[in-house]
Design a binder for these strands. Sequence first.
DNA 1: ATTTTGCTGTTGCAAATCCCACATATTTAT
DNA 2: ATAAATATGTGGGATTTGCAACAGCAAAAT
Lengths: 217, 217
Amino acid sequence: MGWFTMVQLFTGIDDEGMKQLAGCMRMRVSRYKAGERIAELSGKIEKLGLFIEGRGHLELLDEDGVCTRVEEYREGDVFGELFFLPREDSYCSVEADEDCRVMFLDWGHIVRPCPQSCVYHARLISNLFQLAAEKSRQLSAYTDLLTKRSLRQKLLTYFETLRREYGSDTFLLPMSLSSLAEYLCVDRSAMMRELKSMRDDGLLVSQKRQITLLRRK
Amino acid sequence: MGWFTMVQLFTGIDDEGMKQLAGCMRMRVSRYKAGERIAELSGKIEKLGLFIEGRGHLELLDEDGVCTRVEEYREGDVFGELFFLPREDSYCSVEADEDCRVMFLDWGHIVRPCPQSCVYHARLISNLFQLAAEKSRQLSAYTDLLTKRSLRQKLLTYFETLRREYGSDTFLLPMSLSSLAEYLCVDRSAMMRELKSMRDDGLLVSQKRQITLLRRK
DNA sequence: ATTTTGCTGTTGCAAATCCCACATATTTAT
DNA sequence: ATAAATATGTGGGATTTGCAACAGCAAAAT
């Protein structure tokens, strides 16, 4: 089987299907050097890209000229207006952090009814819906975090998702403590203090990025 | 033209198209009394509903048995796993707040390639993608708010979106000040204090729900 | 007409959080 | 191997925010 079997966008599609889709969707692969611009996102759904090799990110230039990295991409990740629809008045682009190979699919051909009305086409659409739904879920989970009123609640909520994900009370944070503070939108020193306080209260054991939740309930 | 022309889900679809789709999608309309359960959402995309009449909401029962209203629906609004995909371990349902009429579309028939590969079908799918993208954008805008570190920044960010929306420096808040505080996840009295401080600093004029932004930049 | 309920506006005080500064690992680059 | 950059851990002190309480007002219910 080809490389694409590992890509969520193409789950359920075999070699035969890929061959058929490649023509039907006008798939094309482009190469980019680190630092190059891969695509610009508009206010309408019209592009769909897939990172085949290398890493990149989506950045947003706000009206004050401030540039922020909004999403990070690596092999297998998709981007496009379906997943991030910029406001009309902002400039938004996907940039290569390393040398990349990126596949583009023509949006018009995705939505347009396939002359052969092939099952592969339907599967691709289904996969896209799945990806869109998961993206929403992810965003919801994040807002759920942010709406928590106290630092402790934020940490616990986040740790809880990690516990579920790893299926274990002990896990390693997938990022540095500094980054975690940023992610939770709190001050790092305040977070360290709160972590200590949670250790003191017997809620968890922690050392560097290793956390063990106690008091399962 | 029919009532459905005003519904985002059916934009671009005429009477003829609706007739064709109705059979093709196995559309069916059900009635519910206030308080009744309209649907349960699972962890897989398999349902799509549309409020034709009446209001309702989506609620989530978390593992501790705490119930929260997550989304509110009125005429023309859609719901389903595409828009809110619950975690496997949670119970999630749509409930009627008033007497309702709700249309259901069969998800299998939406994704399955249409034997006639009709353009209406393609348009519906396209509309669904559009709705999914807008849902994501909305969530992103909200997280953007919540990631702001200070109360003042939260207020300004929110007011800025209202200014854009209304196209005017003066506007009426679409909710009570109390609800706004909840929405921004801050204490109401703290918010009132901050509003006063912003008035003192000449950033805006405000009285009750009426806001006028000064210092446009 | 009266009561009840909810929204607005304000205050003192307590608690949580942020900012800054420093010391020590640990990792990365040269 | 050495230097530089980044990550971790801690603390003091200023600031922001949350909490609780109250009063005036307006809308809605009785």
